[in-house]
Design a protein around this nucleic acid. Sequence first.
DNA 1: CGGGATCCCCCATGATACTG
DNA 2: CAGTATCATGGGGGATCCCG
Lengths: 117, 117
Amino acid sequence: MNTEIISEFPDKEKRQKDFNCSIGFAMTVIGSKWRAIILWHILKNSHIRYGELKKGIPNISHKVLAEELKKLEADSLITRKSYPEIPPKVEYNPTSRGQSLYKVLNELCIWGKEHMN
Amino acid sequence: MNTEIISEFPDKEKRQKDFNCSIGFAMTVIGSKWRAIILWHILKNSHIRYGELKKGIPNISHKVLAEELKKLEADSLITRKSYPEIPPKVEYNPTSRGQSLYKVLNELCIWGKEHMN
DNA sequence: CGGGATCCCCCATGATACTG
DNA sequence: CAGTATCATGGGGGATCCCG
């Protein structure tokens, strides 16, 4: 049973209207400096915690990571599960929509590996 | 015979260092608001002219299109061929490196189509 | 026709400090 | 541990005018 809630993309009409192009729309979803990397880490490591993400993504600032996680959640690409413990514990997981980006990010990853060296 | 010149990526070390991640590196190449769309048009339409690109990409400004074309050329993703005529004529074509991004952009396009509506 | 040159604005990114 | 709150800044992006 799948209980995850996949809402509409925020500003969906605006995103569509600005580009009238599916690549442009896709770039509004993953096309920031860090968003694709963050999502990739979460796709590769389910139940990953905030601190693990921070360690796994060198050079990202604390503020940007927190903001991007909220945006990814707003786009229903990931879910956030908070455990009421001391100290706090938070886990991030991909939604089915997030997982639907696996092929795209995987191609991006392959291309990058082949061309960055 | 292939005479195209594929140079190193400008700022290659910096791009590598900033991310230490192949997805991050790839995003420095296609991850701006318009670059992926422009490259996609050129991949789909060889010998495309500046004016055709401008018409084919709604809402892009003149300045940004000209700038991004120069960046794509600097990254050896496209070539620019200028014909010494009056009025001027300029054609853009993908390089083999540009064509190597076809799979990535195609996946991005497919994903966008499936999720933007 | 295919640009360059200027001016300007906003937002993504970043640094730092504070909190439950 | 996993966040908010604030402030500063650089450059991506846009509008407009000029040019061979």
